[in-house]
Design a protein around this nucleic acid. Structure first.
Lengths: 171, 171
DNA sequence: GCAGAGTATTTGAGAGCTCAACAACCGCTA
DNA sequence: TAGCGGTTGTTGAGCTCTCAAATACTCTGC
């Protein structure tokens, strides 16, 4: 991060683009978060955890894998799973192959809650995103998002362990 | 929000687009937030408040206006300003024309802190966004963001008061 | 087969956010 | 001008997230 000379400020166009994007994505996430809280009594982070678990083989994952797939820190995930466990939506189990490891498994109740939440949620995603965009725009948005994702994915804390353990160069 | 029959699920393309966009914007915001915390010891929300204040006439704004411009709830803003005040970056003053009102004003110290923070921040915005995109993509991103913003802006809590007080239809 | 280094996860404290309740004030109306 | 609904802003409790420290286990080399 060594700075060399003057920082390159954003020009007017970039400034507006950046502010629009920041506000828009923040507002969209906030809106869906509020709707999920109102309709299903859960923050979006919990919803994501349940979705990923529900799609996993055996409906269970090790904490570490779950953290990577949800782009979450280990700590945040652990706290969240504790709370999901208290609600009876997720259950912790021990990992046979590695006694340090813990598994998180979505319960039947969790599946039912998730299905109900997802129904409302998809309505919001349409109303606040896809219904507003042309197919062209949606396709562009996807390309742009994938570029950012490709760049940032590697630097995210949740991915660092994987990068190290698979011998990738660390840049 | 009356649901009519089956919810329209996202098709495969939409699913991937949505997940890519959600992850990318979340990761980008998180990354810049971490950098700001590390380099300038403040969360992004504080940075936004300082930016808006610094650009305002007299470097001060009423709490309500500041809340709207930062898309923040009144409560969140009030808590944030309290903490910014403790750091000496912002000062509260009374509003002459309306004794219910409070002004928030960025201090000289606040301006210096902001300028230092902005230098690092702009580097991050370039590195994690503009350096990755073609001019075309940036232009599309802006269009897409403005569409979302136009739609969501009205429904955001911070905008409801304004909408009501200017006689706009409430949908 | 044990010491030490590394890995997986949890824990606790503290910061920031949300929601609901509150206090202070405005301005209209009778 | 007193009353009252509406507006402005703050507060406190409770929840979620972050960061750093702790715990429990694995693996490697001797």
């Amino acid at each position: 991060m060594g700075r060399v000379g003057e920082p390159r400020w954003l020009n007017d166009d970039e400034q507006r683009t950046w502010r629009a994007f920041l506000s828009a994505s923040q507002l969209l996430i906030d809106q869906l978060d509020r709707e999920l809280q109102r309709d299903a009594d859960m923050p979006h982070a919990y919803f994501t955890i349940l979705v990923v678990l529900s799609e996993s083989p055996g409906r269970k994952l090790r904490m570490g894998e779950l953290a990577e797939l949800t782009w979450s820190s280990a700590s945040r995930l652990s706290h969240a799973v504790t709370r999901l466990e208290q609600r009876g939506w997720v259950r912790r189990a021990e990992c046979a192959s590695d006694k340090r490891g813990h598994l998180a498994e979505i319960t039947d109740l969790g599946m039912r809650v998730l299905e109900a939440a997802a129904e409302d949620h998809v309505t919001g995603v349409r109303a606040h995103l896809f219904d507003l965009l042309t197919d062209e725009q949606a396709a562009r948005l996807r390309e742009i998002s994938e570029v950012i994702l490709g760049h940032l994915g590697e630097h995210h804390p949740a991915a660092v362990r994987r990068a190290r353990s698979t011998g990738e160069p660390e840049d």
